[in-house]
Design a protein around this nucleic acid. Structure first.
Lengths: 199, 199
DNA sequence: TGTTTTTCTTAATCTATTTCAATGTTTAGG
DNA sequence: CCTAAACATTGAAATAGATTAAGAAAAACA
């Protein structure tokens, strides 16, 4: 258990929320599957029922949807220690509107709907852990909504860079534009304006 | 228990998520407080720690924040059977950035932080009930973010009217504009344009 | 009831952002 | 290493929505 395993970072994540015995951890691990995907793999497509919640241990994913004009709009990017899923689709086992795709070769620990239910029955503390996880996600989303209403694109971009410097390195700019809710052209303009300023 | 009480609608809400014994319900009720507020009462101000999660049994509230320009931006309106709170502030017992205010005379069932913790300890099923509640809230917020990125103001207004007809009746238009992320003037323009079309 | 305050509308001007189109640059694959 | 594809930049024209300011209508209030 003390030697580094695939589960190390996930276990640490869990331990920050709830305390578990060794036996609990073992049962937990038995409910999980480790998956490896190549870059540009599709983990979920709109119309499918999302069959997993995935904790990223290596790599990077994007979660996006297609709007009526056919543009891809990124909801969020996940890197190490993030969960990716379409929670609504997963929880209610109904078809998703979202797409999930890897942007790099990615290692993911996934839990299925049935496994999660088993986990809740056997170790109710996981209800709390997932509640806290959703609450955190919700808080992040709320802040994002607020900033998208209050701040002009330039500030939102600067905040994004400040908050997720590693994502900026790893994700192509047109996807970041999609995340910020602006066109790639406009992001490019913002960046060149910023560059002009800082010189 | 079968005669209508203040708790009737909340109990129904809870029962849709988890099943509880009579004794559980009694303990649950003992953790709650019923509050009455006049129209325009302030339930929470930015800077305070949010001390409650409130379930509206009668009336209407708005949850909003002040952006840098000093404009009030509405995050959501709560009517009967909705929860109002600043979840981030409440859960982490840290100062809020939000304001909560009644728009009508309002009856609210509130639970405090301590009472909620007691409840979780005595009846762990409530972890699930609140997890499901947050998940639902999260899904709603996600949809809102998607529509604010994808749809022009006119469509967002039409969706809002279609989804929350009762709120449209009860809430002044300039607040709905603030909810949609546009100015009251622009909403007015949209409405007169729509009126012209439909005649 | 009349009066004050809040809410709603209209119009002119201004701005952030989009769209379109063209060009340049980097990356990936054969 | 070369070529195609993906990605990024730039500029001009178009547009959704903001801002300002004024007046009309409705609601609250005394």
């Amino acid at each position: 258990m003390t030697s580094p395993s695939v589960f190390t970072s996930l276990d640490a994540y869990v331990a920050r929320c709830i305390s578990l015995s060794e036996a609990d951890f073992a049962y937990f691990h038995a409910q999980l599957m480790v998956k490896h995907y190549k870059k540009k793999s599709r983990l979920l497509s709109a119309g499918e029922i999302c069959s997993f919640e995935g904790f990223i241990t290596k790599g990077c994913c994007r979660v996006y949807y297609l709007n009526e004009k056919g543009n891809e709009v990124d909801l969020y990017f996940g890197i190490e220690e993030w969960w990716v899923s379409d929670m609504a689709s997963f929880t209610q086992q109904k078809p998703s509107n979202l797409f999930i795709e890897t942007l790099e070769d990615t290692e993911l620990i996934i839990i299925s709907y049935e496994a999660k239910e088993r986990l809740f029955i056997r170790i109710p503390a996981f209800e709390r852990m997932f509640r806290l996880m959703v609450q955190r996600t919700h808080e992040t989303l709320m802040k994002r909504l607020i900033s998208s209403f209050s701040e002009p694109a330039e500030e939102r971009y600067l905040s994004f860079v400040a908050k997720y410097p590693s994502i900026v390195q790893r994700v192509p700019q047109h996807l970041i534009a999609a995340y910020l809710g602006i066109t790639p052209e406009f992001l490019s303009k913002i960046r060149s304006k910023l560059k002009a300023k800082n010189l």
